[in-house]
Design a protein around this nucleic acid. Structure first.
Lengths: 139, 139
DNA sequence: ATTGGCAGTAACGTTTATGTAACTAAAAGC
DNA sequence: GCTTTTAGTTACATAAACGTTACTGCCAAT
């Protein structure tokens, strides 16, 4: 997401977009809803993101204070990411996005007539991202 | 926003991103919160979006069923856009984003130490996007 | 007849985001 | 000594996204 050149203050949505805009950030944040997750697990849970991009996005999120990076000095390195205090503020956004996604999905499956229109938006591939669940902190 | 090749269904956030991902869509939708707005007014309210991109994004939003386009056959053309039924589902997302923006802003102005980190994310320019207000349906 | 406003569209150019492949360090296990 | 594992990094490449400028059609007013 290209950063905005404009807006001084007044539009909070624009402001927000500078933090969680971009293709992957909301998805990454969604993976952290249930607590700290290590790098490798994120990469597995979001199969279509490259490690390079994942690294970059995590770095940006950390610099913006939304997440916290914990690096443990262990034999094979271990690094975990979790939502920061402010980061928790994204939760309602993610919840609302989840709801919107469900509503859209329902609307599409309901009105068959619209399906062609909507279909092109979701080029399905084999790999899929698992839904958000309660607990899976284990690798 | 590049469209996702992956995910079959399970992650609603990914799903949502295919609809309101992208730099401008949430901002455009935010302008429609108070009812129908005509093209020219959107262009004025979002000064940094080009008309071409505005047109494109509106078209996509319409194709996705989130907004409705009303074209009146008048002397100088008049076209208005408004949230559709499903489109209303984005309102909570926008509200949450507004809240997040405010929280982030507050956090930044509060902790001066973090300001340098956060500052780079908001390259301020003269032009600004007006805040969302109750009513301004008039040109 | 010319100009102005509205809502675009077309052609073209630039930038940003994202992707791929190869490489690193350090300790553990064989 | 060699391989494996983890969390990256570096260099390079491409595709989306975004932008600028110029142009259109139509009617009304000058």
């Amino acid at each position: 997401m290209k950063k905005f050149k404009a807006h001084t203050s007044t539009c909070p949505i624009v402001y927000t977009m500078t933090y969680i805009g971009g293709k992957w950030k909301p998805i990454i944040l969604g993976r952290l809803l249930n607590g700290a997750v290590r790098f490798g697990k994120l990469a597995v849970q979001i199969p279509d993101i490259s490690r390079k991009i994942l690294t970059e996005q995590l770095k940006e999120l950390e610099e913006d204070g939304l997440i916290i990076r914990h690096s443990y000095n262990e034999k094979p390195p271990r690094v975990e990411y979790e939502l920061s205090g402010i980061g928790q503020t994204v939760i309602p956004v993610l919840m609302a996005m989840t709801e919107l996604g469900s509503q859209m999905h329902e609307a599409i499956t309901k009105h068959k007539r619209r399906q062609d229109l909507f279909a092109k938006k979701i080029p399905v591939k084999a790999t899929s991202i698992p839904a958000i669940s309660k607990k899976d902190s284990r690798s």
